[in-house]
Design a protein around this nucleic acid. Structure first.
Lengths: 179, 179
DNA sequence: GCAAATTAATGATTTATTCAAG
DNA sequence: CTTGAATAAATCATTAATTTGC
C-alpha cells in the first residue's frame, strides 16, 4: 500500500534516537504524535467528563489549548478520541464477555397487530428436526407482497456466511433464505 | 406489578398452549428472554441483511429456527427487531443531534473529511495567548501536583455534556470551559 | 549500566456498518 | 436503488517499556 499520507514517513532510525521525551517540539522529526503527559491528562479528563466525539470546532479548540504543552495537531485530537473511545469500549466488553445481553432487552410494547397475531400463533412447536437438518436452503414461497419492500434487495452480498461454531448445527448459512 | 402485557414473571400457561419451551427448558426461571450467542448472531445477520420489520410469517420461521439454539418465542423475535431497529436509529440520532452545537454554515469538516482537511490545516502554533486565560494551564502547569485528581471523577454521561455551553459548576468544568 | 531484542501501547489507516436524501 | 455522511471496528505501524546478555 502506498504509505502516502502527506506526512513524513519516518523509517525507524535505528534506535538510539530518543528524540522526544516530552519536548518533541521543534518538529524536526515527523514521526507520529507523541503526546505529553499534560496533554494526555487533559484529554483523559475531557473524556471522563463525557466528551466522546468532539465536533470539529471543539477539536480545534482542544488542539489549540493543548498546543501549549507541546506539538499537536487537530487530527491528533480527533484520533485520540476515536481510539480512546473504541478501546475503552473494547475493554468494557472484555469484562462482559459472554454476557448474553449484548444489548439490553428493554421490553416495549409491540404493535397491536403483531401482538395479536403472535398471540395466537405464539411459539409453535419446536420443530427443529427439519429445520436444523437442512438449514435454510428450502426455498419458501416468494415473499408476500407486503414484505416485498424488505426483500427486494439482493441478499447475496457476499458469499456464505457460516455461523459455524462448535455446535454441529448445519451451516446455518444465512440470510433469509429460509424466510 | 407483575407482568405488564402478560409478559413475564410467570409461566403463563395460556400463552402458546402446548409445548412452551419445555425441552430446552430448565426454563424454570421465567424471566425475560435471554438470547444465546448464536441467536443474537443470527438475528444480527438478518438485520444486517436488511431485515427490519419481519412479517408475522417471517417471525415465526425465524423463531423456529432459533429455537434450536435455545428457548425463544416469536414475540422475542418481534421485540428484538423492534428494539434493535429503534436503538440503531437512536444511536444514530444521538450523534447527529449531539454534535451540531455550533452554527453550521459551510462549516463542514467532519470525520472523513477531517483527515483531508486537518491534514493540511496543521496546527497553527499560536493562540497561546488565549489559553493562558483558561484554567487549563494554570492547573497543569505545575505538573508535579498532578497526582491530585483535578476532577471529581463522577461520570456524567448522558446529561452533562455541556461542551458547547457554559456551565456554571465550578467543580468539574475546567477544561470544558474553553470548549 | 547499555543497547539489542522482544513485548506492550497506542497513534494512524482502512474497511464495513448504519440511516437517510435524492 | 443509489449515494452521501459519519462513524466504529478492525487493522496496520511505530513508538515506549521491558527484558536480556554482556
Amino acid at each position: 500500500m502506498d504509505e502516502v499520507s502527506g506526512f513524513c514517513i519516518k523509517q525507524r532510525s535505528g534506535y538510539g534516537g530518543g528524540n522526544n521525551g516530552g519536548s518533541l517540539g521543534t518538529g524536526t522529526k515527523c514521526g507520529r504524535w507523541n503526546p505529553t503527559t499534560e496533554q494526555v491528562k487533559v484529554l483523559t479528563d475531557l473524556f471522563r467528563s463525557g466528551l466522546r466525539t468532539p465536533s470539529t470546532d471543539q477539536i480545534q479548540r482542544i488542539s489549540s489549548q493543548l498546543s501549549f504543552y507541546g506539538k499537536i495537531e487537530s487530527k491528533n485530537v480527533f484520533y485520540w478520541f476515536q481510539n480512546h473511545k473504541a478501546r475503552e469500549r473494547q475493554k468494557r466488553r472484555r469484562f462482559l464477555v459472554d454476557e448474553p445481553n449484548e444489548f439490553h432487552h428493554q421490553d416495549k410494547l409491540p404493535s397491536t397487530k403483531y401482538l395479536a397475531e403472535l398471540n395466537q400463533v405464539s411459539e409453535p412447536e419446536i420443530v427443529l428436526e427439519t429445520l436444523q437438518l437442512f438449514p435454510l436452503n428450502s426455498f419458501t414461497e416468494p415473499m408476500e407482497s407486503e414484505k416485498r419492500r424488505l426483500f427486494s434487495n439482493d441478499y447475496c452480498r457476499e458469499n456464505s456466511y457460516n455461523i459455524g461454531t462448535q455446535m454441529h448445527h448445519p451451516t446455518l448459512d444465512l440470510r433469509l433464505s429460509f424466510l
